[in-house]
Amino acid sequence: MLLRRCGTDALLVEVDSLTEVAAVRAALEGLDGIEELVPAARTVLVKGALPQVREALATVDLTKAPENHPREVTIPVIYDGPDLDLVADTAGISPEEVVKLHTGATYEVAFCGFAPGFGYLTGLPASLQQPRLDSPRTKVPAGSVGIAGEFTAAYPRATPGGWRLIGRTEIVLFDQKAETPALLQPGDQVRFVVA
């Protein structure tokens, strides 16, 4: 674990894996005085309460992923994505087996970014861990469900994107007018089901 200074009141905590990111996030979550806590692929950015943060980090066990998930979320998906056949061919299986694999796994929101409410979910079965498209789409429709590398995600809004799209959901992932605007938050446990 490496602590990198980030201005006067923030630190970038650098670790080696997503499991370690989750451990750091869980250790810091809820500390008084923290203004921002932003997990990412190999880092956790924390702003505010630096003395308490350093104290908490001194005793964190990085090997232990947090066991408590604040929430469990189920996302119904219509598996008719434009890249479903490509994903099946790449994995050497049928589209039906892709759906079975994708709905059979349990995922965790590792972090959010790219757009409000866009959660990067880990837990993707190995044969579905596939590269991005060679040429990204200029517009991925809102609700699209895709895979890229070790992650799967649902697009909260229409944006450009290079993920391989296997389906779509009609669930609202981000509503800025709602009391709880984001469906997914770091640490949430997620399952996909056939709509």
Binding site: L12, E36, L45, G113
Partner: peptide, 10 residues
């Protein structure tokens, strides 16, 4: 770098 958190002023 794999995407990481950014703060205002970075």
């Amino acid at each position: 770098i794999p995407s990481e958190g950014m703060i205002t002023g970075a």
